[in-house]
Design a protein around this nucleic acid. Structure first.
Length: 236
DNA sequence: ACCCAGGGTCATA
DNA sequence: TATGACCATGGG
């Protein structure tokens, strides 16, 4: 276990614990999967528009997706950007579902096999696969994304080697066996908090270090040539 | 009028 | 295996 990392997560809980996260446990698994694909390299607001359009069309379902005309699908997911690619990615994921005997069967597979099948699906890479494992299948899998790497790099901690797998293993080792942050629920909670934190305070540009409880322990916030930190006028 | 966002694929060397 | 082009909408 890595105490500074655990303390960091506790601080995130204090700052963002009351915020709502767009994938609560009752979100339908297919909606989570579609969202994970549609949010690739875009903002959540754009992805959410596409999800709502799919919902309105009754297309948050692998069978419906698989039987929907490609042009129609492209039109539905247009607001998420890269709509031609993403329409094909949804089709490919729907095919993976059907090949497994349905979404429920796919998500019931053992984690290694589930991850293998997701990664073998065109359009699904490590991050999207782990997002689905964690939030749709409820597995003990850490999601590594741009937010995760940015916040931990700024904090001044991280794996020695800068690959996706190294970050993932480092995170898992950093929290285990802490009951609150390890395990499936812990991994999901930690990632959700990191995303909220990176969006609201630890932003790429104009980070609001002045509002951040972690500031005393953050390398980035205390650099001599300091980042442009705003002064605190933000309440928790 | 820029610039970039919670990636992934493909071509090239 | 490493790097870069490409995808494309919407918000700052």
């Amino acid at each position: 276990m890595n105490p500074p990392v655990v303390r960091f997560l506790e601080a995130l809980e204090a700052m963002h614990g009351n915020e709502r996260w767009h994938w609560d446990p009752e979100t339908h698994p297919f909606e989570v999967c579609a969202g994970a694909i549609l949010v690739q390299n875009t903002t959540w607001t754009n992805a959410e528009r596409a999800v709502e359009r799919l919902r309105a069309a009754g297309a948050l379902d692998p069978v419906v997706i698989a039987t929907t005309d490609l042009n129609r699908l492209e039109d539905l997911v247009r607001p998420s950007g890269q709509f031609r690619q993403k329409a094909r990615k949804l089709l490919a994921f729907a095919a993976t579902c059907l090949a497994a005997g349905g979404l429920e069967c796919l998500l019931a597979l053992p984690t290694p096999e589930l991850r293998r099948r997701l990664l073998a699906t065109w359009g699904i890479g490590p991050e999207t696969a782990d997002c689905i494992c964690c939030y749709a299948a409820g597995r003990d899998v850490f999601v590594v994304d741009a937010y995760t790497m940015r916040t931990f790099r700024r904090l001044g901690v991280g794996p020695s080697s800068d690959t996706y797998e190294q970050w993932q293993a480092w995170l898992a080792a950093a929290v285990a066996p802490h009951p609150r942050w390890s395990g499936a629920a812990g991994a999901a909670r930690a990632h959700a908090l990191i995303v909220l934190h990176a969006k609201r305070l630890c932003r790429k540009r104009q980070p609001r270090c002045g509002d951040c409880l972690v500031r005393p322990n953050c390398r980035y916030a205390n650099e001599e040539t300091g980042p442009p930190c705003s002064q605190g006028r933000f309440r928790y």
